[in-house]
């Protein structure tokens, strides 16, 4: 591989990283950056176009939405929701999946059978139907959306971890540690976990991207983050009836989601190549 090409690959990943960092900064600095309150209505200013379009003004650089709220401010605050939903759900799924996968792989026997069958059942259940039904039982709230998206994602991680554990369990260094009297928990944490971290990280990266899209899908079904909190998914969904009459409503959150998800995917791609090119096989 020429060094030029290598640099090209890194450039894409770097661009992805820049997008992610920028989004995180937007989220953190939202109160300082936002030109106005993201929640307060000003019906009188409803549907003001972006500053550069006819009828726009720099008071609302990206225009206002259907209730006269500043689109830029909502976008900035919305970054918080999208990032929190994406990362928190994946964290829940990842921790749950890794722990259950370790247990299943390490102990085998009935816990293994039970957990893997549970995973099969989970995969055989249409994910959105599950989310809709669960959210009909629980209140739709930020926390519950995160929980639903998180809990339903554990199977992939558990399967990867279990597979790795099975292949590592009888390797010399693990057997040696066990012969020396190492406790199960210690073995898992010290010897096995580090070995599964690479594939897990890669899968998790792609999952964050997928969850951000899934949150938008929930909004489409009316089960997303409750109003008036801004989330990119909800903004995009609100904007879809205004494609011809208020294009900026859907364009900006759409672009934001597109860029962030693309950025995360690019970083994920790079991570996978760097850590383990074979990893998507065993999922």
């Amino acid at each position: 591989m020429s060094s030029l090409a290598r640099a090209g690959r890194h450039r894409l990943a770097l661009a992805g990283l820049v997008v992610i960092v920028a989004t995180v900064l937007m989220a953190l600095l939202a109160p300082a950056l936002a030109p106005s309150d993201p929640i307060k209505n000003r019906l009188i200013d409803r549907l003001t176009p972006p500053a550069w379009a006819a009828g726009g003004s720099w008071t609302h650089p990206l225009g206002t939405d259907t209730l006269g709220r500043d689109v830029l401010s909502r976008l900035l605050y919305g970054a918080r929701v999208s990032l929190v939903v994406g990362f928190a759900s994946v964290a829940i799924a990842g921790v749950l999946g890794v722990v259950l996968g370790l247990v299943a792989g390490f102990y085998g026997g009935w816990p293994d059978d039970a957990l893997m069958r549970l995973g099969d059942i989970q995969l055989g259940f249409p994910a959105l139907v599950l989310a809709i039904a669960v959210l009909a039982v629980l209140d739709a709230s930020l926390l519950n959306v995160i929980l639903v998206l998180g809990v339903s994602g554990w199977v992939t991680y558990a399967r990867i971890v279990r597979g790795e554990v099975l292949s590592l369990k009888h390797r010399d260094f693990v057997e040696a540690a066990r012969a020396l009297g190492a406790a199960d928990g210690y073995l898992m944490l010290r010897h096995i976990l580090p070995n599964v971290l690479a594939p897990i990280t890669v899968v998790a990266t792609f999952s964050v991207a997928r969850i951000i899209i899934a949150e938008a899908s929930l909004s489409f079904l009316g089960l997303g983050i409750p109003p008036p909190a801004p989330s990119w998914g909800a903004m995009l969904d609100e904007g879809r009836n205004y494609i011809t009459t208020g294009w900026w409503l859907a364009l900006f959150p759409g672009l934001a989601i597109l860029l962030l998800v693309l950025g995360i995917n690019l970083v994920g791609d790079w991570l996978r190549d760097a850590l383990d090119p074979r990893m998507e096989r065993g999922i």
Binding site: I39, K40, N41, L43, T66, L67, P227, P228, E238
Partner: peptide, 11 residues
């Protein structure tokens, strides 16, 4: 209707 509800809440 959904937009209206949000507006009423703010009022």
């Amino acid at each position: 209707f959904d937009e209206m509800t949000t507006a009423v809440v703010e009022m």
